[in-house]
Write a protein that binds this DNA or RNA. Structure first.
Lengths: 154, 154
DNA sequence: CCACGATACATAGGAATCCTATGCACCTCA
DNA sequence: TGAGGTGCATAGGATTCCTATGTATCGTGG
């Protein structure tokens, strides 16, 4: 039955993606908390951005993003400047040390996985194909019209 | 340069895996907290197990696993029984409602991703190949001898 | 020009998930 | 029988996340 198979594929995909991600986060030798790394990554991609923009892009609440940005600013990884278009808003940007911290965290995570990849003796084309699919899926989730979970309606 | 390419592959893989996993967790319509789901999944795989065994399998600390199991027990999703071999230990097992809660959470997550998969019109063989690689990687991480992060040495 | 509703961000209080340190009961071994 | 190790629980704390609410600012319509 085709539908059951698709459910199983989706479940297997999510389960293994979650496990791999968690494993790498817990074994990588870097000090950057993963939510902090995620925010730095977004700021790098989006360029100077408002807190509400970052919150939307990260699918997180505005107060949560406010606190994350405050921490990153305290650590010197981002700066905030007034948005000339709106006195209420500020624009978050990476500092050179923020860029360095993000790069270091990425290298550490990549280095954690590399021995596993080479240990599998995986065909690089095969890995590339898998990564391409994951990237397409992530892109597609950005535009997917997912109905709000029904159980959360007030 | 081959090494740079492998770093990039590993980085892309982990980044997209993390994003996909987070997206699904946040959009799936179920009430089971993701750490609870993870523990239920482990208990399902391992059969009756001790807290220290579950902690090791989940790469988490023993007190953290104690608290998680306490919560699951309070919700009626697991039971604990004395280990006849050791009065200090107890064995954690799934209850029927734990099994049902886990299955419901898995279905919800899979259903969240399914429209994205079908929207991509992805060749099921291509998805299957990607999942197979991820599963192999996860298996390989269990046996990988990863050096402890150097920065954490006391 | 002013008032009202909307918006951007901050604070408060709390939940979930994770940690280390430590304590107590039990186990193993010499 | 005692010392060292093990299994689990508790205490205190960090990180990440939430909703509710408050304040300052903006936009729009009358």
């Amino acid at each position: 039955m085709e539908r059951v198979s698709t459910d199983d594929l989706a479940d297997d995909l999510l389960r293994s993606a979650a496990r791999l991600s968690r494993w790498a986060s817990r074994h990588a030798a870097h000090d950057l908390p993963w939510a902090q790394a995620r925010v730095l990554s977004l700021v790098e991609e989006l360029g100077p951005a408002r807190i509400t923009t970052l919150a939307a892009a990260d699918d997180t609440s505005q107060p949560t993003m406010t606190t994350q940005v405050q921490r990153l600013e305290a650590e010197g990884f981002v700066t905030r400047s007034s948005d000339p278009a709106d006195a209420r808003a500020s624009l978050v940007e990476l500092t050179p040390s923020g860029t360095a911290a993000l790069a270091a965290a990425r290298r550490a995570r990549a280095r954690t996985l590399e021995p596993v990849l080479t240990g599998l003796d995986a065909d690089p084309a095969r890995v590339r194909a898998a990564v391409d699919l994951l990237v397409e899926l992530v892109e597609a989730t950005r535009t997917a019209a997912v109905p709000e979970p029904a159980g959360t309606a007030s």
